[in-house]
Write a protein that binds this DNA or RNA. Structure first.
Lengths: 233, 233
DNA sequence: AGGACTATTGACAACGTGTCAATAGCTGGC
DNA sequence: GCCAGCTATTGACACGTTGTCAATAGTCCT
């Protein structure tokens, strides 16, 4: 993997004071001259685990899974590679844990969903979504349906994370009361969520559409889903 | 990887008479008793390449990329692993070639798109899409945006394949004449394509919605995009 | 200070990939 | 029919990655 610094846009959920990558990795990485023996230091398991996690998060956000080796992560954390397996079992598991956090973006808060007509509430909900998208950075956009139906673990994680946002959206559309076709309504909103994600991609990644244009598309399609598709269950 | 037979639903584009996996692989796979020395046979390059390709296609359709090793493919084709690199350079390249074929599904024919109101044409277009989806199997659904923005090669292949369908859809919606915001219109249909794909997933993979329900959702959203979002460019 | 607990290491085995010189199947000329 | 040349095909090699595990060495407690 090519070592690069990157801006590290979206580090979500940072319980402990974010232990810096440790002067260890720096010393090793910068040059070979600096051999003051680097007394290895012994942290308590939670801190060390968290530190490794943060480094992995950064790397996985900047590079695709297979381009990040356990060695890279260990080097970034200034730690022996074996320690990764000790704390996370295997690389894939660590990755899944990173995903689990990264994909919890947006479920955090929609504060108060205001009164008003359906159109107004949809408008606000879309605004809120685009805001949170802009803040959370682009890595979340790259996530998703690539391995759907193939990778059960990843799928359940992603589904679980998306469910929160979806419940929220359903409520915002005034459909919280509906109980009969509940699962089917959820499915429809899940489909819509992909539309929203895809819209975000065009806006933030490919830059082919402006925010107002994406907003218009998302708002009008959501409205028509609520008005036409949902009643058809 | 787990060796399993599978039905091999969608083998598209089969130029040569589909050389069977060769009794070689069978002999090796079935039991160790059958050692009549297996004279290796020398095919002309096109045939051999095609044969390897077919085996790879089958394996990649049934298992995710990283679970299929070059050894698996070579074994399936009854051939030395080195030959794969000789013909395709590397594993990734072979994979991309498989994808390039698999993703050309649906661009084949929409025959005649009939006259009629916008609603009618949209209805037919959605029907056509769902038909082709049902036929092409589920592997196409699993493809897609997972590595978007990360994997340029895969992205361009997928985009290229999707572009055909999108041009078709634009025409079906009577937007072929529009020239000014062309690229933005394309972007909107690209977003819609993700919605359609996602709808297909709910219908065929997760089985949470029925075909009529997905149809209604796709038709109404497409209509509203054409009527509301597109005029806003 | 010294002993016990355990976080951390480093070497090992297994596996996967790409390269390349050596091998052996086929084909055409005699 | 047979032999020589062409090249499709092989198998071993070098290197990188992953997961395991016994050995090592910080740190805390008495």
């Amino acid at each position: 993997m090519a070592a690069l610094a990157g801006s590290g846009a979206n580090t979500v959920n940072e319980p402990s004071p974010a232990p810096q990558p440790t002067e260890a990795s720096a010393a090793k990485a910068v040059s070979g001259v600096d051999l003051h023996q680097m007394r290895r230091q012994r942290l308590n398991p939670d801190e060390r685990r968290q530190q490794i996690f943060v480094c992995a998060q950064k790397l996985f956000n900047e590079n695709p899974y297979e381009d990040v080796s356990a060695t890279d992560i260990a080097a970034a954390a200034g730690v022996a590679r074996g320690l990764i397996n000790h704390y996370f079992g295997n690389k894939r598991n660590l990755y899944l844990e990173v995903i689990r956090i990264s994909s919890t973006v947006s479920a955090v808060a929609v504060a108060r969903l205001p009164e008003g007509s359906l159109e107004e509430r949809i408008d606000l909900a879309v605004d809120w979504f685009l805001d949170s998208l802009e803040k959370s950075g682009t890595s979340w956009l790259a996530l998703g349906s690539g391995s759907m139906g193939r990778d059960p673990d990843l799928e359940t994680i992603l589904i679980a994370a998306e469910n929160d946002s979806i419940e929220l959206l359903i409520e915002a559309c005034g459909l919280a009361g509906r109980t009969e076709g509940r699962e089917q309504i959820r499915a429809m909103f899940r489909i819509y969520a992909q539309l929203a994600r895809s819209g975000g991609r065009e806006w933030l990644l490919r830059k082919t559409l402006t925010r107002p244009q994406v907003h218009a598309l998302l708002a009008s399609t959501l409205a028509v889903i609520v008005e036409k598709a949902v009643p058809a269950v």
